[in-house]
Amino acid sequence: MVPRRCLVTGAGRGIGAAVARRLAAQGHAVALTARSADELAAVAADLPGRTLVTAADLTDPDAADLVLGRVEAEFGGAVEVLVLNAGAGTSAPLARTTDEDWARMLELNLTAPFRLLRRALPGMVGQGFGRVVAVASTAAKRGDPYVAAYTASKHGLLGLVRSAAAEVAGSGVTVNAVCPGYADTPMTAATVAAISTATGRTPGQARDVLAGRQPIGRLVDPDEVADAVLLCVASAAITGQGINVDGGAVQS
């Protein structure tokens, strides 16, 4: 495989860290960004090959230009592989979802990826090659109770992916999403803790509840999500897709 210039957002842990490890293992140059410089440094320390750490708050309107500009300067050209993984969740009944909750979900899960995609696409189209993979969620495919803001942001992200893919089809650039179910990540650990607090279940029982929502009967491993990301990076014929990685929970 030809070495590529890559940027992974939310790369300090979980799915983002797994994707960064897999890209680096294939010989790509990998830039990592997230809020926590310490977490990024710990991930980068274990990666082979060329890496770059650039901590940033991607909800800052200037972050996309600053992060991509630094990667381009350090790696010597436009980013070729962009993995939009940074995101967060929130849970509340719709009637108790605040304006602040709503705005935070849209800003981090939809607006920040939009800004990065808008900034990166011209360089990809200009060089005739690009791979964009957004980490969405099965929440991009269905509605569940108590996660209206999160679900709306992920539906929006999948819509952004599909529209962008149609726009650049034929240019050598593909745009896809992967849609994990409940994965074994810090984000799911926070959900487990919230369920435990709200219901009185033990953390183990709460974790089993989430695992049981997937027909395979367990949480998805972050490396299994990375498998789907790497497939999208490798293939020029997969574009405009939302690939479920959820143990069969959502069939499409």
Score class of each variant (00 low, 15 high):
residue 242 G to C: 07
residue 98 T to H: 06
residue 112 A to D: 03
residue 135 V to N: 12
residue 72 E to Q: 14
residue 225 V to K: 08
residue 28 H to Q: 03
residue 237 A to V: 13
residue 170 G to Q: 12
residue 243 I to T: 06
residue 134 A to M: 08
residue 216 I to F: 14
residue 168 V to H: 07
residue 198 A to E: 15
residue 11 A to Y: 11
residue 248 G to F: 01
residue 5 R to G: 08
residue 193 A to H: 02
residue 248 G to K: 07
residue 229 V to N: 05
residue 148 A to V: 14
residue 30 V to Q: 11
residue 236 A to P: 12
residue 50 R to T: 14
residue 47 L to M: 07
residue 194 A to I: 02
residue 106 L to N: 05
residue 139 A to G: 05
residue 142 R to H: 12
residue 108 L to Q: 10
residue 225 V to R: 11
residue 50 R to D: 12
residue 246 D to R: 07
residue 218 R to I: 02
residue 47 L to G: 03
residue 201 R to E: 14
residue 237 A to N: 12
residue 248 G to R: 04
residue 91 S to G: 10
residue 80 E to I: 03
residue 73 A to T: 12
residue 81 V to A: 14
residue 38 D to P: 04
residue 47 L to R: 04
residue 149 A to N: 13
residue 131 R to E: 01
residue 98 T to D: 12
residue 100 E to T: 15
residue 196 S to K: 05
residue 32 L to N: 06
residue 41 A to W: 00
residue 213 R to H: 09
residue 14 G to V: 11
residue 193 A to V: 10
residue 91 S to H: 09
residue 33 T to F: 00
residue 152 A to F: 05
residue 49 G to R: 05
residue 79 V to S: 13
residue 140 A to T: 04
residue 122 P to C: 06
residue 35 R to H: 11
residue 136 A to P: 03
residue 146 Y to P: 00
residue 156 G to K: 09
residue 47 L to C: 09
residue 89 G to D: 04
residue 109 N to F: 02
residue 143 G to R: 08
residue 64 A to P: 09
residue 181 G to E: 12
residue 85 N to I: 06
residue 205 Q to I: 05
residue 38 D to R: 10
residue 120 A to P: 07
residue 247 G to I: 00
residue 207 R to W: 00
residue 97 T to Y: 02
residue 219 L to V: 08
residue 109 N to Q: 08
residue 243 I to Y: 03
residue 27 G to V: 01
residue 25 A to H: 07
residue 90 T to D: 15
residue 246 D to P: 10
residue 72 E to Y: 03
residue 33 T to L: 07
residue 244 N to H: 09
residue 36 S to H: 13
residue 161 V to Q: 06
residue 115 R to D: 04
residue 33 T to M: 10
residue 169 A to V: 10
residue 118 R to L: 01
residue 249 A to I: 00
residue 83 V to C: 13
residue 164 A to Y: 02
residue 110 L to C: 11
residue 134 A to G: 14
residue 221 D to G: 01
residue 100 E to D: 15
residue 17 A to E: 13
residue 103 A to I: 02
residue 59 T to M: 05
residue 177 A to Q: 06
residue 31 A to V: 00
residue 194 A to W: 08
residue 56 A to R: 09
residue 146 Y to R: 11
residue 178 V to W: 03
residue 19 V to R: 04
residue 241 Q to V: 08
residue 122 P to E: 03
residue 252 S to H: 12
residue 163 S to A: 15
residue 32 L to S: 03
residue 165 A to K: 12
residue 149 A to H: 08
residue 73 A to V: 06
residue 116 L to P: 11
residue 72 E to R: 15
residue 24 A to T: 07
residue 244 N to E: 14
residue 222 P to A: 10
residue 180 P to S: 09
residue 159 G to Y: 02
residue 85 N to H: 09
residue 211 A to V: 08
residue 140 A to M: 02
residue 91 S to V: 06
residue 235 S to Y: 01
residue 206 A to Q: 07
residue 110 L to K: 05
residue 43 V to C: 08
residue 3 P to E: 01
residue 236 A to C: 00
residue 251 Q to W: 01
residue 240 G to N: 07
